[in-house]
Design a protein around this nucleic acid. Structure first.
Length: 586
RNA sequence: GGUCCCGUAGCUCAGUUGGAUAGAGCAUCUGCCUUCUAAGCAGAGGGUCGCAGGUUCAAAUCCUGCCGGGAUCGCCA
């Protein structure tokens, strides 16, 4: 419950009352309306647009409805005044006690303030990263990884039952290439001169330790085997090593998954989930044998007409049907992915979120189609696309190239700029917007860099509490004590402004969670930090506004309560982003 | 050619799911440190919200059509 939803329910009740009194038509349906913080502070604390929304259906002037609502609502003890403004807005101003109560609420609830209550509308699955297990993670993976992780945090905070999942692509041709590449390193480890790495194999040095480990475990026993015998052995060995490396990289960013789902496991141990998914689709009449049309505007001399097994994804909004089998009869990647999503549905997930890179946008319609088909539209899938990250070094574009050796791994970035800045910068932008990532700027410790600005606000709050204890011996700054503090001295506009921002937090979380947009939290924290810094500095010019009043324990206690409330919300926000909230800046 | 994303101050970007006079940072200019951390704050200037229509009490936001930038386009993963 937050002040906005509280007002919303009050207004709704008032409307019902007006209906039963005959002031509004009795059969008037009540649509959704907003109770939101107005942009302009002179419009009060909360603006309600109910009268505007209802006017047409009620066949009344919006201002008349607003006046009627006003007379119903203004008796409430919380309300200082209500004004009917503009075309028919209801501008509500609270008494300052409301804001004082809010501080107490925050101290009471602590880290649970703003959190949603547990939801009963089904389990939610967030799939993110899912990088191929063929090498270390590079910067390109970084954004999706951080985004997915923060989104999952946000949804947990908002009350969802969230599972974080990673899909391991360990069944395609690329893992055979990995195996051959690792086999070469194995021979190298045994003393063979392997020369240059042939074209088409992975040249990365990260496979050397895998070769050494293979030699240690298998000795020379793999040397004289035919490829069909050593390949599966080396493959699973190498995949395991690659996943260890990837998990390590993710750990450096504080990212963890609950489930690592193996693509190969879809068809192992006697089960064939791909076949099952296709059969399920066939039952629904969505599978047929046919030909696809040659894509237009795409010169491909290799094009051949072929009959293949197709999924009727056009029935669900895709622009062409999609192949499930290759010409040689083996399954396409999409067939596996369809089965994987079938599996998610069977595991009981009703809300699916996939985080994709921009290069996979074309894939979205078919995967949405297959989820809609397999769930009979009972489950929803939201695909969040993170746009490209462009790297800069001191303002200059930084080109990556595997060949030139300027390939930037995720680990390089984290080692160079640190985990918190990487995470915050990746989240300080809408996911659909391309992101410029400048190594120089990200390490800068100034206002230019939002992560330090926000962390500084948290550290500053902590510092005020430390100083207060030092300056006023015997002052109890525990939450328990401050919960009962007399807050009536909190009347300064700067202080009240700070509380109002804290009041907006639950609403912010709610909106960000339902829109799947963690960046809103990052921007909110910046604004909140700004309000705190601002109030702090006011104390420079006006000593009576300082948080610590060494000769007035009562006023100090009230302000410290405000500080703790602010610190609590900053901490909660930073937790969602996965960024540390330091007690002091070094 | 199809599909998706982006276009808002000189630059980089927000804009609370359709609300009132469109915001922040950087950059430029003017102030504030014997002071609870100046890693900070206050103020000024800066706008055809890509263009044109439409929907309605109300549009940067929704719809249509253009213009510009990017991603992607049978069996790869």
């Amino acid at each position: 419950m937050n002040v906005f939803t509280e007002v919303q329910t009050r207004v709704r009740a008032a409307l019902e009352a007006l209906k039963s009194e005959g002031a509004l038509p009795a059969d008037l349906p009540l649509p959704d309306f907003e109770a939101e913080p107005p942009r302009d502070a002179s419009h009060g604390d909360i603006a309600v647009n109910a009268a505007l929304v209802l006017a047409k259906a009620a066949k009344m002037k919006p201002r008349d409805i607003a006046e009627a609502l006003k007379s119903k609502l203004e008796a409430h003890p919380d309300i200082a005044k209500i004004e009917v403004a503009g075309p028919g807005f209801l501008n509500i101003t609270f008494k300052s006690e409301v804001w004082h109560d809010l501080i107490r609420t925050i101290l009471q609830r602590g880290s649970a303030y703003g959190a949603g209550s547990e939801r009963s509308d089904g389990k939610l699955n967030v799939e993110y990263v899912s990088a191929n297990p063929t090498g270390p993670m590079h910067v390109g993976h970084c954004r999706g990884a951080v985004f997915g992780d923060a989104l999952a945090n946000l949804l947990v905070f908002a009350g969802y039952n969230v599972t974080r999942e990673y899909y391991i692509n360990d069944a395609g041709g690329q893992v055979d290439v990995l195996a051959r590449s690792a086999y070469l390193r194995y021979r190298e480890a045994l003393g063979d001169d392997i020369g240059a790495i042939p074209e088409g194999l992975y040249p990365g040095e990260y496979l050397q330790p895998v070769g050494v480990a293979l030699a240690k475990e298998h000795g020379k026993s793999l040397i004289n085997m035919p490829e069909e015998r050593w390949l599966p052995i080396v493959r699973s060995f190498a995949i395991e090593k690659m996943m260890e490396m990837i998990k390590d990289d993710l750990a450096a960013l504080n990212i963890r998954h609950d489930v690592f789902f193996s693509e190969a496991s879809l068809r192992s141990g006697g089960r064939d989930q791909i076949k099952a998914a296709i059969e399920e689709l066939r039952k629904k009449g969505l599978i047929y044998e046919g030909k696809l049309e040659k894509p237009k505007g795409h010169d491909d001399g290799e094009w051949e007409d072929r009959v293949q097994t197709l999924f009727k994804s056009t029935a669900f909004g895709d622009d062409e049907d999609r192949a499930l089998q290759k010409s040689d009869g083996s399954y396409t990647y999409f067939a596996g992915d369809a089965a994987y999503h079938y599996d998610k549905l069977q595991r009981g997930f009703r809300h699916l979120i996939n985080v994709f890179g921009a290069d996979h946008v074309g894939y979205i319609p078919r995967i949405k189609a297959v989820v809609a088909a397999l769930s009979d539209k009972a489950a929803d899938l939201d695909v969040k696309v993170v746009q490209l990250v462009r790297l800069f070094k001191a303002g200059e574009p930084y080109k990556m190239s595997k060949r030139a050796g300027t390939f930037v791994t995720l680990r390089d970035v984290v080692d160079e700029v640190g985990r918190d800045p990487v995470r915050y910068m990746m989240l300080y932008r809408k996911n659909q917007e391309t992101l410029d990532f400048d190594f120089a700027k990200v390490t800068e410790q100034s206002k230019d860099n939002p992560v330090f600005y926000v962390q500084y606000a948290h550290a500053r709050s902590a510092s005020v509490l430390r100083n207060a204890v030092e300056q006023i011996p015997g002052l109890d700054v525990s939450v328990e004590a401050l919960k009962n503090a007399d807050l009536s001295s909190l009347t300064d506009p700067g202080e009240i402004d700070l509380v109002k921002r804290l009041a907006a937090f639950p609403r912010l979380v709610d909106g960000a969670a339902s829109a799947h947009e963690p960046h809103r939290v990052a921007f909110y924290l910046y604004d909140l930090a700004s309000a705190l810094h601002s109030q702090w500095t006011r104390g420079n010019d006006s000593p009576h506004l300082r948080f610590i009043q060494s000769n007035d324990g009562v006023a100090t206690a009230a302000r410290l309560a405000l500080i703790i409330a602010t610190k609590t919300v900053i901490k909660s926000g930073l937790d969602i982003l996965g960024v540390e909230a330091p007690e002091a800046m070094r």
